[in-house]
């Protein structure tokens, strides 16, 4: 078993989900080589080389990798696999990993195993299907396993004292056919949703975007990230990057506080693995109460400020 981990990074920071994917890669039972592609990846390479479990770092330094475009990245994965004979290609099941890995799998003529939550052997994996309403165990019969990892299912990898050596990845002739135009990222000083240990999320019951201020006050007091249900995003209260659910982010913090969220199946799919779930809703029949460890039937506009004060 020799695994190749595709490292996701932005603004010289390694994506949190890559640390979870590294733990999964180490769990395969063989060596883990990390692949870092970028136009100026030196500081990321230095950081990756000190992540626990990384035995070597392959560096693809080229202007073509300035943005995370799929055509060049997929070709790089394929060329790197062919040169070194890795048995597993692995990345986080993030927008980055989801975009690139299936393309590489097709070029290698192998299946991909998406969004794994467990490893039962080097060729056997556990993954949720039907938005987590069923859990499948699948065995790959391909010689190369291409895998994306659900971050919340694996702990983040730590650090090692000795830095792993690095060398150049093979050169790739493939230029991107798609072209980067622009990006618009939500800036926040709060913890990131997918790695926060505490999350407070608002739903349609928040009534408007301004009222999310109540959640931000509570979040700041306990160091939590703020999220939202799809209903709140669709109603335009908050940006899509906050969405938690089947079609948004999957989170599993220590503490999840659902405020004014009814608990549609699609929302539950994104948060039901949280350790402790609190629901605040004025409708005692809301389905969210059935999964909540602690339910408070109350008007959120009085309960949330009171809770913030008492935390």
């Amino acid at each position: 078993v020799s695994a190749l981990l595709l490292v996701e990074h932005k603004d010289n920071k390694i994506a949190a989900s890559t640390l979870n994917a590294l733990t999964a890669a180490s769990g395969l039972g063989g060596s883990v080589t990390a692949l870092v592609a970028g136009s100026a990846p030196d500081s990321v390479v230095a950081e990756v080389s000190k992540l626990a479990g990384v035995s070597k770092v392959l560096v693809a330094k080229d202007a073509v990798f300035a943005h995370t475009l799929p055509e060049s990245h997929a070709s790089l994965l394929v060329e790197t696999q062919k040169k070194h004979g890795f048995t597993h290609l692995i990345a986080a099941h993030s927008a980055f990993g989801k975009n690139i890995l299936p393309r590489a799998a097709a070029l290698l003529d192998v299946a991909q195993i998406s969004d794994i939550t467990g490893i039962e052997g080097a060729d056997t994996f556990v993954r949720p299907i039907y938005a987590g309403n069923a859990i499948a165990t699948v065995k790959s019969n391909d010689s190369i396993k291409v895998i994306t990892v659900r971050g919340t299912a694996f702990p983040a990898a730590g650090h090692q004292d000795a830095a792993a050596p690095h060398e150049d990845a093979p050169a790739v002739g493939q230029k991107d056919q798609s072209e980067f135009v622009s990006e618009h990222m939500q800036k926040s000083d709060r913890p990131e949703l997918d790695s926060a240990t505490r999350v407070i999320a608002g739903g349609r019951g928040m009534k408007n975007g301004e009222n999310f201020g109540l959640l931000y006050e509570m979040a700041d007091k306990i160091g939590a990230a703020v999220g939202a249900s799809r209903a709140a995003v669709d109603a335009g209260y908050v940006d899509n990057s906050l969405q938690i659910g089947q079609t948004g982010k999957i989170v599993a913090p220590e503490l999840y506080v659902a405020v004014g969220i009814s608990g549609a199946i699609q929302h539950l799919a994104g948060m039901k693995d949280s350790k402790t779930i609190v629901a605040i809703n004025k409708d005692p029949e809301a389905p969210i109460f059935q999964v909540a460890d602690y339910g408070l039937v109350a008007d959120l506009f009085t309960a949330v400020p009171e809770l913030t004060k008492k935390l």
């Binding site: 192998v110 299946a111 195993i113 056997t124 949720p128 299907i129 987590g132 309403n133 069923a134 859990i135 499948a136 165990t137 699948v138 065995k139 790959s140 019969n141 391909d142 039901k272 779930i277 005692p284 109460f289 059935q290 999964v291 909540a292 460890d293 602690y294 339910g295 408070l296 039937v297």
Partner: peptide
């Protein structure tokens, strides 16, 4: 290329407590 070995229901949460 992939063989499904088994499919199970997800673990049930013990929720429902009201404060």
């Amino acid at each position: 290329r992939l063989q499904t070995l088994k499919i199970v229901e997800p673990a049930k949460r013990q929720g429902g407590k009201i404060v």
